[in-house]
Structure formats: structure tokens, C-alpha cells
């Protein structure tokens, strides 16, 4: 684990800005995926509103920094807190709704939030969106790919440590109890409503922070960046990575961020031989994306985290692995 962390910190020295940019997107997606996994994987409450919650984080930070002219360092946590509040609000139906019904309720959240963002033109700029800046401290601007990557990596580390700690103490255990057996959880003295809403809030906090970091990375927010497709991508991250696993959230985020890039290379490569087929190959990319997710759902429900553990166990026993 330490080696991986060290590697994450050192590798920008060795590669170019393009790779570091991808790594930044992976780090940001990891923060959001861990957030979603807290809710869905660990507490058992599904949400299809992640896309919009990322938007709440992004727009909050845009308004605080660009409109109000306040600092990035202030805007990031506030973006988290505002998103947490919005998330908690839309988490209220979870007391009565479960499974598919809750999914539909969070889908409604997705549409309501996007509707508000699109229509509240005076605050959000409507469909034309808003422009953001990279942060700075004193005279130093985090404009370079490397420097912004380090900010995101630091936030990711904080997210990981917080979540690991949460799940070895009282609140995290209660989340797991709510997920596994809600009746028994009540008898343990757990107020289902409080804990479900709390899980929505904590989860949305990290999604909001991820949204804000992403907004300052792309330096623009606009409604179409937060569509339901984004929600589905985040669900795919935790499904492919592993529900209820922090490592899985990260592996899943990396996988889903890099998959289109790699498929894109594949398409470019194939186009050399089949130049007329470029359009069809581009469509194939989306099919492949869907197929891979279905593959994971069917053949590896434990996700990448499970595969990783199997590999680790294999090497632990390696010379004697029979």
C-alpha cells in the first residue's frame, strides 16, 4: 500500500502532462467513487443522482470562486458541505423507499437539480455555464498539470484515510448494519432514518468535493457535463471495482476513466487499416463499454478488488500454491 502511495506521488516526475492529466481525472473520479460507495456499497442505498451531485459541487465552487471571488481553498470544503446538505435532502425518501423505488427517487433528484442549474440563469449562467480558475497560494499558481495533480492526490488520500477510519468505528459499523439487516440494526439501537440520511450526506460530501476539483481542472462547468450518463459511469466504477470496497472504488474509477482512452487508441489503430469504418468503430467503443460492465456483473460480482485480492493471495502462497 505504501509503495503504491509513493508511486502515485513520484510518477509525474517520469511522464508527460497528458498522462498526469489522466491521473488527475482518475484521482478525482476515485474520490467521487469512494463517496458513492459509502452510500451504495457500504450502506446499501442506491443513488442515480451522482452526476447532479458532482454538478452541485462544481457549481458551488464556481459561484464561490468566480462570482464571489473567494479562495479555492475555502470553496472546496464548502462545495462538499453544500452537496452534503443537498444529498441529505434527497436522501430523505430512503426511509420509505428501497431498491428500485429509491433508484427512481434519486433519478428524480438528478433531473430536479439539473433543471434548477439550467434555469437559474442569474446564478449559474444557464446552458452557457461558468468559467473557473486553477487555484493559487500567494504567488504560486497550480496551473501546471503536476501541481494540480498533487492537490487531487492529497484530497484522495484524505478521503481514503477518513473512509477507512469511519468503517472501523461506530458510524461505519452502523452503516454496514443498515445495509445487511435493517430490522436487527434497529434493535441494536440504530435509527435507520438518521443513518441513511447521514450516509447520503457523507457520501455526497465527497462527491461534491470531487465535482469541485473536476470543475477547477476542466475550468468550466455547464449542465451537460453532469448528465445521467455521468451517474451511470460512477455506478459502473463501483460495480466494476467492487461494492463496499475502498480499493475497489479506486480501481473501478481508474478502469472507467481509462477504458474509453484505451478503446479510443484501439479504434484509431483499427482505423489505419479500415479508414472508412471510423464511425462504426467509434460506436463500437460504447458497445464495448457496456459489454465490459455486463461481463463484470456476471462473472466477477466481487469486482476488481476481488481479483486483486485473489492475485495477492496467490502470490502470498506462491511457491506452494497447490
Amino acid at each position: 500500500m505504501l509503495i503504491l502511495t509513493a508511486l502515485a506521488f513520484l510518477f509525474p516526475l517520469l511522464t508527460n502532462d497528458y498522462i498526469v492529466g489522466l491521473a488527475t481525472l482518475c484521482a478525482i473520479a476515485s474520490i467521487g467513487a469512494i463517496g458513492l460507495n459509502i452510500l451504495t456499497g457500504f450502506t446499501g442505498q442506491i443513488s442515480i443522482g451522482v452526476g447532479a451531485f458532482l454538478g452541485v459541487g462544481g457549481y458551488t465552487s464556481a459561484i464561490i470562486t468566480s462570482t464571489l471571488g473567494l479562495s479555492f481553498w475555502f470553496a472546496i470544503p464548502i462545495a462538499g458541505i453544500v452537496t452534503a446538505a443537498v444529498g441529505a435532502l434527497f436522501g430523505i425518501p430512503s426511509l420509505r423507499l428501497k431498491g428500485l423505488y429509491l433508484a427512481i427517487a434519486t433519478l428524480a433528484a438528478q433531473f430536479i437539480i439539473l433543471f434548477v442549474i439550467t434555469r437559474w440563469t442569474s446564478l449559474t449562467g444557464g446552458t452557457s455555464g461558468m468559467v473557473l480558475q486553477r487555484p493559487s497560494i500567494g504567488g504560486f499558481s497550480f496551473m501546471s498539470a503536476d501541481s494540480y495533480y498533487y492537490i487531487c492526490l492529497a484530497v484522495l488520500l484524505f478521503t481514503i484515510i477518513y473512509t477507512l477510519n469511519l468503517f472501523r468505528s461506530r458510524i461505519g459499523r452502523a452503516f454496514l448494519a443498515v445495509r445487511d439487516r435493517d430490522v436487527a440494526a434497529q434493535i441494536m439501537g440504530i435509527n435507520l432514518f438518521t443513518y441513511k440520511v447521514l450516509s447520503f450526506a457523507i457520501s455526497s460530501f465527497f462527491v461534491g468535493v470531487a465535482g469541485a476539483l473536476l470543475a477547477h481542472y476542466t475550468m468550466i462547468v455547464s449542465p451537460e457535463l453532469y448528465s445521467i450518463t455521468v451517474s451511470i459511469q460512477y455506478l459502473a466504477m463501483i460495480l466494476v471495482g467492487g461494492l463496499g470496497s475502498i480499493l475497489g472504488s479506486i480501481l473501478g474509477a481508474i478502469f472507467i476513466v481509462l477504458l474509453p482512452v484505451i478503446l479510443g487508441y484501439g479504434v484509431d489503430f483499427a482505423s489505419i487499416f479500415l479508414p472508412d469504418m471510423h464511425h462504426m468503430l467509434a460506436a463500437f467503443q460504447e458497445v464495448a463499454f457496456g459489454a465490459i460492465i455486463i461481463f463484470f456483473l456476471i462473472f466477477e460480482p466481487g469486482g476488481l478488488a476481488h481479483i486483486w485480492n485473489n492475485i495477492k493471495n496467490y502470490f502470498k502462497l506462491w511457491p506452494f500454491s497447490y
Binding site: 459499523r173 440494526a185 457523507i202
Partner: peptide, 18 residues
């Protein structure tokens, strides 16, 4: 430990900072 849930106090901040 879940059986002792109500005897314990740590919330989301204390828990996360551990």
C-alpha cells in the same frame, strides 16, 4: 460491538479522524 452501539458515542468526525 454493534450490540453496544448505543453505549458508544463517536460520530462521523471523531470516527473519521479515529
Amino acid at each position: 460491538k454493534l450490540g453496544r452501539h448505543v453505549r458508544m458515542k463517536s460520530g462521523m468526525f471523531k470516527g473519521g479522524m479515529y
